[in-house]
């Protein structure tokens, strides 16, 4: 399952991190820290849905649930099965 983790982290860094010196780990708060605003979160959701061929209901796509790479992986796993 580590694989999903790495894919998501790579996407997050590619898609959202603007400053090269910023370190993002599996536990870095993304939304509550302001790194990812809730408006931009949709592209992450769309990416996950496409990549893993899943559908994440809006009720699950809360800013809290999307706040770290680890918690995002949890959502993906929940809907993959």
């Amino acid at each position: 399952m580590d694989e999903i983790k790495d894919v998501v982290l790579e996407y997050v860094i590619d898609e959202y991190v603007e400053e090269d010196d910023m370190e993002v780990t599996f536990d870095t708060p993304l939304i509550s820290s302001g790194l990812v605003d809730s408006f931009s979160m949709v592209s992450l959701k769309a990416f996950l849905e496409k990549k893993y061929d899943i559908s994440i209901p809006d009720a699950d796509a809360t800013p809290e649930a999307f706040d770290t790479v680890n918690s995002i992986v949890g959502i993906v796993e929940k809907h993959k099965s």
Binding site: E15, Y16, E18, F39, S40, V42, S43, A46
Partner: peptide
């Protein structure tokens, strides 16, 4: 419409 964003 679908929406997407790009870095500033």
């Amino acid at each position: 419409a679908e929406y997407d964003t790009f870095k500033h």
